[in-house]
Design a protein around this nucleic acid. Sequence first.
DNA 1: CTTTTCAATTAGATTAGTCTAAATCAGCGT
DNA 2: ACGCTGATTTAGACTAATCTAATTGAAAAG
Lengths: 229, 229
Amino acid sequence: MLSAKMEDYLKAIYRLERDGTPPVATSTIADTLDVAPPTATSMVETLADRELVEREKYKGVTLTPEGETVALEVIRHHRLLETFLTEELGYDWSEVHEEAEILEHHISEEFERRVAAALDNPDVDPHGDPIPSDTLDPIDDIPASALADYGEGRRLLVARVRDRDPEELTYLDGAGIRPGVELVVEEVAPIGMVTVRLDSGETVALPDHIADAVQVRSPEDAADEVSEA
Amino acid sequence: MLSAKMEDYLKAIYRLERDGTPPVATSTIADTLDVAPPTATSMVETLADRELVEREKYKGVTLTPEGETVALEVIRHHRLLETFLTEELGYDWSEVHEEAEILEHHISEEFERRVAAALDNPDVDPHGDPIPSDTLDPIDDIPASALADYGEGRRLLVARVRDRDPEELTYLDGAGIRPGVELVVEEVAPIGMVTVRLDSGETVALPDHIADAVQVRSPEDAADEVSEA
DNA sequence: CTTTTCAATTAGATTAGTCTAAATCAGCGT
DNA sequence: ACGCTGATTTAGACTAATCTAATTGAAAAG
């Protein structure tokens, strides 16, 4: 059996591999999980012993296929739970992260199956992130980039909203910025501020660090993808 | 914060106080939780330091009011979860125990509130056990005794079915013996066997150890109680 | 009032996950 | 090529929860 801690490390490594270029440095893991560097070192040793990561001393780690499977399993749990909490228990999508972060380690396979069935096997969670299938095949993130990367005047579709800080999410949710919403970039101010106009006509100003959490794509790309499937 | 382990000890002590006469001996706790006696000793020490139990060395422990509140909170979680799993996720009532046993330690107060609301604040779980209120007031078990304690020929109401062994529960469920069902005791055989007749006309033979799990009361008592409330 | 018995506790070790402080390695800059 | 700097690992210690083996205590039996 894998401890909740080990699952957290694997999930973090999975994320970090995607964000940057593998191998993932131990200090990065330490920062992400908010532990001291030696703690990360000692945990990646155990993970390597269990053949869940490939480790090169002083370089970092990469997930083995088994490690990736575990990470995908945990991410599946997390995203199914987030979906379940919003759809079935009336949580606001901005407040489900914490709860899912804990429960993801404690639900059984049976629970996972039943929740997935109750939700009719969804493939995206409330933040717009893809839910790994029950076969845990590798997933592709929806191609999208940060709001500020597009020029002014573009009509864009909110593909996903990163769920790091609950405060930010509550703010965005309150402003009506959610996955699936369309908006137009009104102004990209040089002082670190982006202004967008929603279909409601409302104009919202977002400081850069919040705008970064909003991942957008062009509506045409989204349409293309649906026709492919 | 209280660890899941500590919660388990408090819950066990709560149960044992009800079953027998306090104080609860450490060896009894050790047996219940399947740990070695010194493990129980050392844990009741910590519990006593935290003022969750009153301890008298070489005698045993009793819960303090704070300890009882924690126990009731965990039991509320457990029973709400069992109810939720059967009502909303289609679990069979005979298989919910294991899942609830783990999740009870990991759900938030928010989750508890929302589940209770979704179920319309139930006051009994699928096994017929009372669910502590959100104010965690002390609970009274529904007065009922083991099936074999009544004489033959009595018409009885199944008040609750103890959830110890899943196999037993599955057997009883399959035989149609569930909380709320009425039955007649046909024969109490001296070789440790009880035969009952259900309203369906079906006759079921139960070995003593299984019959013990079935707690019954007279239908009149049940009616009296409803009129009181 | 002893003695015997068995439950309960103490002693000491183990594992997982964490820390701080010290040592060491890798790679860049001159 | 050499040494500096910062990242990484080693060393050593701590806490929680557990174990086995040894000791001690309480309480019943004689």
